[in-house]
Amino acid sequence: TETYETTDETEARKIAEELKRRGLTFRIERHGTTIRIESD
């Protein structure tokens, strides 16, 4: 499991693209301005 936290929408998108490219599944949670991406 890898966890990323960012407040930057663009960075979050880049992380999501990278995880997809590596064939990982992940979920995105939003907590206020923080975007949390957690891979399975």
Rank of each mutant, 00 (worst) to 15 (best):
T1K: 14
I37P: 00
E17I: 09
G23T: 01
I37F: 04
T3N: 06
D8G: 02
A16Q: 11
L19K: 01
G32Q: 03
I37G: 01
D40F: 15
T3K: 09
I28M: 07
D8I: 05
L19F: 10
S39L: 15
G23D: 02
K14C: 15
T7A: 06
E9L: 10
E2M: 14
R22K: 06
I28H: 01
T7R: 07
L24A: 05
H31T: 10
T34A: 05
I28F: 06
S39D: 02
D8V: 04
S39A: 15
D40E: 11
F26W: 05
I35K: 00
Y4I: 04
R30N: 05
E11V: 12
E17Q: 11
T3V: 15
T3E: 05
T25M: 09
T3M: 11
T7S: 10
L19T: 00
E2W: 15
L24G: 02
G32S: 03
R22Y: 03
I37Q: 01
Y4W: 13
E38S: 14
R13L: 13
S39G: 05
E2G: 08
L19W: 07
G23H: 04
R36F: 08
L19V: 01
G32A: 03
E17N: 10
T25S: 13
E38L: 15
D8P: 01
K20S: 10
E17M: 12
T3D: 03
G32V: 00
S39Q: 07
T6S: 03
Y4N: 00
T3C: 14
E11Q: 08
R13W: 12
T25E: 08
D40I: 15
R13H: 09
F26C: 15
E5R: 04
T6D: 00
R30S: 05
T10K: 10
H31L: 11
T33M: 12
T1I: 13
T7Y: 06
R21S: 08
L19S: 00
D40Y: 15
T25N: 12
I15H: 05
F26Y: 10
D8H: 04
E5D: 05
E18P: 01
H31E: 09
E2N: 10
T1D: 06
G23V: 01
T34Q: 06
H31C: 12
I15M: 05
R22L: 06
L24S: 03
E17S: 10
T6V: 10
T7H: 08
R27T: 12
K20E: 08
I35G: 00
S39I: 15
I35A: 00
E2T: 13
I15L: 05
R13I: 11
T10Q: 13
E29Q: 10
R13Q: 12
E9T: 05
G23A: 02
R13K: 10
K14W: 09
R27W: 12
R27V: 09
I15W: 08
E38D: 05
I35V: 04
Y4R: 02
T25F: 10
T25A: 10
R13M: 13
D40V: 14
T1P: 12
A16M: 15
R13G: 07
E17C: 15
A12Q: 01
G32R: 02
Y4P: 01
T6Y: 03
I35D: 01
E29R: 11
T1L: 11
E18Y: 13
K20Q: 09
R21L: 07
R36V: 08
T33S: 12
K14D: 06
R36M: 06
T6A: 05
Y4L: 02
I15Y: 10
T34D: 02
T6W: 01
R27L: 07
I15E: 01
T25R: 14
E38R: 13
T25C: 15
R36W: 07
E2Y: 15
T7K: 08
F26L: 05
I15G: 00
L24T: 03
I35Q: 00
E38Y: 15
R36K: 08
T3W: 14
L19M: 07
S39V: 15
I15A: 00
G23Q: 03
T34E: 03
A16Y: 07
K20R: 14
A16R: 05
T6P: 02
E18Q: 09
R36Y: 08
G32D: 04
K14I: 10
E18K: 07
I28N: 02
G32M: 03
E9K: 05
L24V: 09
G32E: 04
R22M: 05
R30M: 11
I15F: 08
L24H: 07
G32T: 02
I28Y: 05
R36G: 02
H31Y: 12
L19Q: 00
E38W: 15
D40M: 14
R22G: 02
T6K: 00
E9S: 06
L24F: 08
T33D: 13
T25P: 06
D8A: 03
A12I: 04
R13V: 09
T10E: 14
A16S: 07
T7P: 03
A12P: 01
L24P: 02
E2R: 13
T33W: 07
E5H: 07
T25L: 09
I37K: 01
G23P: 00
S39P: 07
I28G: 02
Y4F: 08
Y4D: 01
R27K: 11
F26A: 05
L24N: 03
T10L: 12
R21F: 06
F26I: 09
T34P: 00
R21T: 06
A12R: 01
L24I: 11
K14Q: 12
R30E: 04
E5M: 08
T1V: 12
E9P: 14
A12C: 14
E9D: 06
K14P: 00
E29W: 14
G23L: 02
R13T: 09
E2L: 14
T34Y: 09
T7I: 06
E2Q: 11
I35E: 01
R21V: 05
E18G: 09
G23N: 05
A12D: 01
E29C: 15
T1E: 07
K20W: 11
L19E: 00
E18L: 09
L24M: 08
I35F: 09
R13E: 10
T34M: 13
T10N: 14
G23W: 02
D40N: 13
T7W: 06
K20Y: 10
E2F: 15
G32L: 04
A16L: 13
R22I: 03
I15R: 03
K14S: 09
I35M: 02
G23F: 03
I15T: 02
R30G: 03
T3R: 12
R36N: 02
A16P: 00
E38N: 07
R30T: 08
F26E: 03
F26M: 04
Y4K: 01
I37D: 01
E18I: 09
R13D: 07
S39R: 07
T10Y: 11
S39W: 15
E17P: 00
E29L: 14
R21I: 06
R13Y: 12
R27P: 02
I37C: 02
D40C: 15
K14N: 09
G32W: 02
T7Q: 11
R22S: 03
T6R: 00
R27F: 10
I28Q: 03
R27N: 06
E29S: 15
E18C: 15
T1Q: 10
R21C: 08
I35L: 04
I37N: 01
R27I: 11
L24D: 02
E5C: 14
R36D: 00
T10H: 12
E17R: 12
T10G: 12
E2D: 07
R36Q: 03
T34N: 06
T33G: 11
E9W: 14
E29N: 07
R30W: 13
E17L: 13
T1R: 14
E2C: 15
K20P: 00
I28K: 02
R22H: 03
E29G: 06
L24K: 07
T1F: 14
A12M: 06
Y4S: 00
R13F: 11
R21E: 05
D40G: 12
R22F: 03
Y4Q: 01
E29A: 08
H31F: 13
T25V: 08
K14A: 12
E11N: 04
D40A: 11
H31P: 00
T33A: 13
E29T: 15
D8K: 04
F26R: 02
E11A: 07
E29I: 15
R22W: 04
E18W: 15
T25K: 13
E29V: 14
D8T: 05
E18V: 07
T33L: 13
D40Q: 13
E17V: 08
K14H: 09
A12F: 05
